[in-house]
Amino acid sequence: MASIRLSDYSLVYPMFHGSARSFKKSLVRGVRQSLSASQRSDGVQRVGGNIVSQADTTMVLALDSLTLSIGSGERIGLIGHNGAGKSTLLRALAGIYESPLGTLAIDGEIHALLDPQSGMNPDLTGRENIRQYGQMIGLDRKAIARLEQDVEAFAELGAFLDLPVRLYSSGMAIRVGFGLATAPRPEILLMDEWFMAGDHHFQDKARERLTRLIEHVRILVMTSHSLPILRSWCTRIVWMKSGRIHQDGPADAIIDAYEAEQGQA
């Protein structure tokens, strides 16, 4: 049985700006701080202002003590404003971000659609990227050949598939990225909202491919700003506000409440 269990899970995200990336400046800052601290203890008057060693580093509490339990068969939609922590939560579930605070337990084979480029190397051709991706997700030679055929048929790029990805238009790159990301058949699927991109003809095809994938998985966790899509695909909605779970419940009820609040604002 596939399941996801979060208990009191928090994640702190460091953001560096200014000179926080400089080793020299950080060192100097640290020395100054300890100097001013020792001067204070000696009772000597402090020179200059107190410089905090974390001056250029902002710690963002991206996820704030989340407790959440998701069982097999559930289709979860994450909603909330930009910066509410939806994408961070997906990345944490995918194991890309790790945090020592609280516990996160995942049972089942997991796959994440997070990045439209799926970690593609722009200098490799589309075909080489497909093979490399296959290797990265641990497929054997036969499975990689199948993946190649599958994505080639889906992306419909013709001869472009043998050209470097950096020559592709963004729509073409997304076709390959989408085809790749949606090829595996995991138990748990995590999906960020980028999958709605692409031209019109592609969207129908993408929708069809995604629907097939979603029918197959045991657990789906997705983010989207499109409420109609969430209504039709999800059984349960988790509404996030500044890193916390604001509301959690059946899809229609929560989306109605969300719409009501949006309407007021």
Binding site: A112, D115, S118, M136
Partner: peptide, 9 residues
């Protein structure tokens, strides 16, 4: 970086 952000390896 791009690989690290895209998948767990």
């Amino acid at each position: 970086a791009s690989t690290i952000h895209a998948m767990r390896l």
